[in-house]
Write a protein that binds this DNA or RNA. Structure first.
Lengths: 206, 206
DNA sequence: ATACCTCTACTGACTTGTCAGTAGAGGTGC
DNA sequence: GCACCTCTACTGACAAGTCAGTAGAGGTAT
């Protein structure tokens, strides 16, 4: 897409990306305003369009940078040599850690999931589907070997995805409902602990 | 909100509401176009604004009608005289049934949750918080009585909320990822069954 | 003849993207 | 040590289009 490519990571570009992540998370693709994003970076909106040729390209850059982080940060957890429930807990931990350090991205991703995910085709093919397939294969193997109790592996992943993902994407809602900050360290580890306990009770062999 | 109320349910009004539900679910509040909604009802957009004085009022009416349905349809499940895990399964079933019959509302609700839920304050105070409090109180009582294994009741609700809610709000994403319709009867009961089994394995006393 | 419902035509606000031009840093020849 | 050029980063002004909401007139049933 970028034919003549001098900069790639100027300070302005980085500030624009940071503001864009916030605005796209807060207001969605349609709701975000280029002039607001530019303003947060201390620039006028034409300058933003000097660095990114269109709103869509800027959005794509935000997604891409998060997908890079996701792949890097989950790699360790997935390729670990653990077995049975320890490996499950490790993946849950990795998911929590990733979203806790990328809370805005959780909301961007949810908006995409709501829209059917058509803008995520590359990310799905490149990162999400492989991740899911490895996880399901792992679960099947471990259940077969008797190191995990039998459950539907794919649906188990869907349940974990829903629980972890929702905690972060709906953090504002939870805050309003319960009057506490879900991204605080205590709230976060309370939820992670509860999920891990629940899964452990259901998955650990008797 | 509706002080001087002549019509309340003309045929046009009902058709507008149905179209609005679809459009708000598909594109969000900002993305939805009044002229598209009106067009689906066979009307021009100023005619829509004759029935609903603003886009925001129309949106509020969509939310309100769904909250009415929610309260009615979950009432039976929550006030049932069941005990232990049977009651838990009954609430899960009710949640599935509600969202399966209101798939568009699931996505509208998720968009609201993403935005922090500030437009849902009435619904939270009137329906959601009471529902949650009754559920948590029930879980505590049953755990105390030994009819359910001990888990964190609030987090347990959050996990169920996340799993059920995500299944419906992200149905389009799941369809893209797996290539099957998540709202089909088989897919739906597969997921509900998996969730019920998982919860049962974790919650039923040994 | 009046209440209700609908339309066409229009406005004002706003948004993305374009364009011409400015400021300043840095290299080069002399 | 200076005239000249080029490049990046940036801006204000504007073009083009979209959208919610308004005004006012017409049709229809009672």
């Amino acid at each position: 897409m970028n034919a003549t490519l001098p900069d790639t990571d100027s300070p302005s570009r980085a500030r624009i990306l940071a503001g864009a992540r916030r605005e796209f998370a807060d207001r969605g693709f349609e709701g975000a305003r280029l002039s607001d994003i530019a303003g947060q970076a201390g620039l006028s909106h034409p300058t933003l369009l000097y660095h990114f040729t269109s709103k869509a390209e800027l959005y794509g850059a935000v997604i891409a940078s998060a997908v890079v982080d996701w792949t890097r940060e989950t790699e360790a957890a997935v390729s670990g040599a653990l077995h049975g429930f320890d490996q499950v807990a490790s993946i849950i931990d990795a998911g929590f850690a990733f979203f806790a350090s990328h809370p805005d991205f959780a909301r961007i991703l949810r908006r995409e999931a709501l829209d059917g995910g058509h803008r995520l085709d590359d990310a799905i093919a490149g990162a999400l589907r492989p991740f899911l397939e490895r996880a399901v294969a792992f679960l099947e193997r471990e259940m077969e070997a008797g190191r995990l109790r039998r459950h539907d592996p794919l649906e188990l992943m869907a349940i974990c995805y829903g629980a972890v993902f929702t905690y972060f994407s709906d953090a504002g809602f939870r805050a309003r409902l319960l009057g506490e900050d879900p991204l605080s360290e205590v709230a976060l580890s309370r939820h992670r602990h509860a999920l891990t306990e629940l899964l452990g009770a259901a998955l650990r062999p008797a």
